[in-house]
């Protein structure tokens, strides 16, 4: 054993002892496996660092190259005919094979794509969303509807759904008198109901007034005789003949989803289509929430 090895071992011993002293001083609980592993790791690092450095420094001082020289040399610099070290040669071959796989399959198949990540994220979320809210109860829908409303609807209809003093539809009631009159005078063919277009001027003068009064009043009280012309499509109760025509009494799911899909240009102004913005569950939730606005 030469002096270099002795010095290295001495350094390692000092570090190991220092580690043990610290452990002792700080009252570290060695029954905790994490502490034990950490301490053993520190000891191992000290021993390995000095052991390995000593080995190679020693080798540099004493080692001599051996083997048969090749015939050619360049300005006196020659080359040995030694075999490649086994470990190196096998890892080199291994890397070659891996590189071929990576070039042909590894990278092209697994390359990062931001759009791919978005697709996966959205798909995973939608599946989970559908699963979770397949049979959502009223309270969940109400809550979901409110949050959808605040993001997508509130900028025009106001946070409370009051239509911001006439800038958009007021969800406090189904239709105002002016809106009913406007629809009667201009007809309507926007929402894509199975019943199709409503022709203009189905009722006039006092009849139209009476109908507007009645519908705007929430379809309460005695039905005016003129309403018969409406009931052929909208139903005698104005509920829209189970989805054939718009419901005039309340915001049912059909009114909300048809308006979201097609948008609407009416007496107040124009509402754009929100066709791709909301999922069916969200539309249903929105209908529940909007209904609750007019219920109070």
């Amino acid at each position: 054993m030469n002096s270099l090895m002795i010095k290295a071992l001495a350094f390692a011993a000092v570090l190991i002892i220092a580690t043990l002293v610290v452990v002792k001083q700080m009252n570290i609980d060695l029954s905790d496996p994490i502490n034990m592993i950490t301490m053993l790791g520190a000891v191992a690092i000290a021993a390995l660092t000095f052991g390995v450095s000593a080995k190679y420094v020693n080798q540099m001082k004493t080692d001599r190259a051996e083997g048969e020289l090749t015939e050619e040399n360049w300005d006196g610099i020659g080359e040995y005919k030694n075999e490649l070290p086994g470990g190196w040669a096998y890892s080199f071959l291994g890397v070659l094979i891996w590189a071929m796989w990576y070039f042909i399959a590894g990278y092209p198949v697994n390359a990062f794509s931001q759009i791919g990540m978005w697709n996966e994220e959205v798909k995973a979320y939608n599946t989970k969303f559908e699963e979770t809210h397949k049979n959502a109860d009223e309270a969940t829908l109400q809550q979901m509807g409110e949050s959808v409303f605040l993001v997508q609807c509130a900028p025009c209809h106001g946070e409370t759904g009051d239509g911001l003093s006439g800038k958009a539809q007021d969800f406090g009631s189904r239709m105002s008198k002016e809106q009913v009159l406007y629809a009667i005078q201009n007809g309507s063919n926007q929402l894509g109901y199975p019943m199709g277009a409503m022709p203009p001027m189905m009722a006039q003068g006092a009849d139209a007034e009476a109908i507007a009064e009645y519908v705007a009043g929430g379809m309460k009280g005695e039905q005016p005789a003129a309403f018969a012309v409406c009931s052929s499509c909208h139903g005698a109760d104005g509920q829209g003949n189970s989805g054939m025509a718009p419901n005039l009494a309340v915001y049912d799911e059909a009114v909300v989803s048809h308006t979201l899909e097609h948008g609407k240009k009416g007496q107040i102004g124009k509402m754009p289509s929100f066709k791709t913005m909301l999922t069916p569950v969200q539309q249903k939730a929105l209908a529940v929430y909007i209904q609750s606005l007019s219920a109070n």
Binding site: C156, L164, G269, F274
Partner: peptide, 20 residues
């Protein structure tokens, strides 16, 4: 896609009137 002429008109004149 989701705002209209009259909304912009209200909003440019007084943003707080539509978004408090």
């Amino acid at each position: 896609n989701y705002r209209t002429t009259d909304w912009h008109e209200n909003h440019m004149w007084d943003p707080k009137s539509v978004v408090p």
